[in-house]
Design a protein around this nucleic acid. Structure first.
Lengths: 124, 124
DNA sequence: TTAATATTTAAGCAACTACTTAAATAACGA
DNA sequence: TCGTTATTTAAGTAGTTGCTTAAATATTAA
């Protein structure tokens, strides 16, 4: 922290510029990072992917499809809902979850890339 | 788990289809989720953003810009490197980090959206 | 060689995650 | 009403994360 880089080539101006730039985007970064960290979980990414394919699904469906307990699914859905990425609608005793289109924009391209049948494997 | 949804309206065929579909994309999902979870940390997203702006930066620069200790930065860079999102090049005693273009594709659109000066705040 | 700089690594730790099982809540039909 | 189904909530827990400080490594220059 703080006691600044003393490197010969440290470009003080560049660093100052970056600090200002980063301050400007910090609010958006926080928002985006939140969405990415929600989508960065394999189970939740699968849920988002499935919702983008099927439009709406209930916890029970997701439990069957992903072969996980209902409470586990429910807790993931809760996080997605609180993060604004999905919304829910109760019909009888069934709760249908669906994507919140405006807030899913950030990861739209990601989901889109998954639609192309898992080609182009990345080395990660 | 398992003991399948008994809902009246459970669409057994839909669920079966989804299971097959999800099995197909699971490898890509895992890869993408890994990249997203790396980018889903505010500090690392800032690092990626800065690298996309400045092409290359050293831990010392990043420490100055983000006002964090060098070890903290170094540990984030290590994760990004191990995840294949950045690469490093040593010049003298300085190590320059830069983006790995092919592996950063997943989050390119995300970074691009940040370039437009933090407008369009998402409710999240 | 010695001292200084740049970076990484290691160990410790508080906070968070993602599951588990059990219990609570809500809607439905007999 | 009672029993069943769908979902959520709660409590417990193992594993992970992101920092801290201290020490190790590597490069440079006097």
């Amino acid at each position: 922290m703080s006691k600044s880089c003393i490197r010969v080539f440290a470009d003080v101006e560049q660093i100052q510029q970056c600090k200002e730039e980063i301050n400007k985007v910090t609010p958006s970064i926080a928002t985006v990072a939140k969405a990415l960290s929600l989508s960065g979980n394999e189970v939740r990414l699968k849920i988002l992917y499935l919702l983008s394919k099927e439009t709406k699904l209930c916890p029970c469906d997701l439990s069957d499809i992903l072969e996980m307990t209902v409470p586990a699914i429910s807790q993931h859905l809760k996080k997605l809902r609180e993060g604004g990425l999905v919304t829910s609608e109760k019909v009888g005793q069934t709760v249908f979850y669906s994507l919140v289109e405006e807030n899913i924009q950030v990861i739209r391209p990601v989901l889109a890339s998954l639609f192309n049948g898992s080609k182009k494997e990345q080395v990660i």
